[in-house]
Design a protein around this nucleic acid. Sequence first.
DNA 1: AATATTTTCAACCGCATTATT
DNA 2: CAATAATGCGGTTGAAAATAT
Length: 558
Amino acid sequence: MGCGCVQCSIQECDSVSGVAACFLTLYFFILTAMSSVTSGGDNRKIYRGCRSSSLDEEGGVGGNMGGEVPLKKGPWTAAEDAILLEYVNKHGQGNWNAVQKYSGLARCGKSCRLRWANHLRPDLKKGAFTQEEENRILELHAKMGNKWARMAAELPGRTDNEIKNYWNTRIKRMQRAGLPIYPPELYERILNGNQESQNICPLTVEASQHDNLLQTDQFDIQDMDFKNVKFHHGPSQVPAILDIPENLFEQCSDSSHLFPTIYPSKRLRESEILCNSFGSCTANALQLFDQYGNYIGEKIYDHPRFYPPFESVHNTSNQFHGGNINGSHAMLNGNVSSSVPLFGARKLELPSLQYTETQHGSWVTHGSPLPSLESVDTLIQSPPVESIPSDLISPQSSGLLEAIVYNSKSMKDSNTDLFFPVITGASNEAAGSSTLNHPYKTEWEEQGESNSPLGQSAASVMTDYTPISSVDGPQSIETTQDHDDKLEALTWFPNSSRKKEKWEQIDFSQRPDALFDLAWFGSNIECGISQSDLKDALSALLGEDYKSNFGEDSKGKQ
DNA sequence: AATATTTTCAACCGCATTATT
DNA sequence: CAATAATGCGGTTGAAAATAT
């Protein structure tokens, strides 16, 4: 055996405690050996993720050449803990890769560090979070987003892993319960704090620095003008989470980071992948679309950088011309336009509490539950309970996605171009013929288009429609004013010609990302639209790009 | 009581960053 | 200055525990 073996460890013992540690080590190896025998030597437990110098020297992963002890994975035993504790007592923290060498512990340095940091550190608090700590986590997350390590630094005795787990659990729980992720009061405070560029609570100096980070490197958004870009959503949580603080937009000079740049020096996080996928490849977009349920359910909520597309179309500053995005990573012939430097190597990190003024109140007053994750999946993946032949579906009944499908069928037949006015026309007509009156329409207009009807619609869909499992046929037809409003959101195509014009500017061939917003509508179980219909619609909209990329896969899967 | 499902959380993994050689 | 090692971080996984059926 070379370094790190029991023998070496024993030889290095030069004190009583060292001798004790050596015996512990010996004991551990016996235990490990026995464990291997009794468990059949679970190969999965061989740690392949860590670079172990000794292992590398010995011929690599899992190679137990020359009797080298393979690195162990999985739960730590008390004996291992004892060894690690002993090592830290003797040598101090750090230099974790030396643990194996000096103590013979068959764990990689990474694993040792993690175990120490998360479980063995003497200053760790045990037990559940206190109410105070929970509140603090909420505040910190609202300010920092998923910066678990930073948050942990603000919570003495707590680990990033704990906080992360707590948060993920909380998210799921709150979403399931249809409750807001952040308490309304916190939202108020954050919002006010952001607007006033002040701390929202008596945070520490470090926290104040985080505020600075929030305004500088954490967000790292170049000068861009978002004054006219409004992100409006209904009261549902998901859109709320996706929102971005308005003051943030005010720092911005263009809308390009709606579609963030890929940062070559950094790995792509999912949100970046998501956004860029829309811009770079329609096939990817479609795949993502297909996976929408997963994203919405498990990804979006903790990706503050995820933005719903489309909304900027309603930007009154006319930053978009002909439906394309100036200076953005707009989709151009299936490629991302990178000609305009957008962020450089900047990182786009946003806090999670990202609301606009206009939804300020709604967030507080609406408790509208988001459909559960399961229901979202159901809505997307399941065929309608009583599917009406899609040819017979009238766009009059329930909104955009339906209209798209309806019109896509027409387009397939007539080879109409890929622009949207056809849809608009039908939908507009639908809106015109709809008997549903709504209070929102005038609000949108009063707000000078700032309140995206699409956003409202999407939010309403996401928020208000019940899972397919709980709705069938006639029950889906609501007569109350409340549901009239919701239905109205699905038939939002306005009478206003201005809105129509703007909607017409959306070129789906140039903005496949915009299709993502259609996914919002995919959850409308009343559409009676199957996935195949949806794909047909997308095929019609995207043409060859779709067929050559997604279409093949799709066929393969079928 | 048995089984299925859901929840929790410790640990892994891959990548980025920083330090060292 | 490049290569390598060490460390840190955040996302994800999967086994065990808890809960529901």
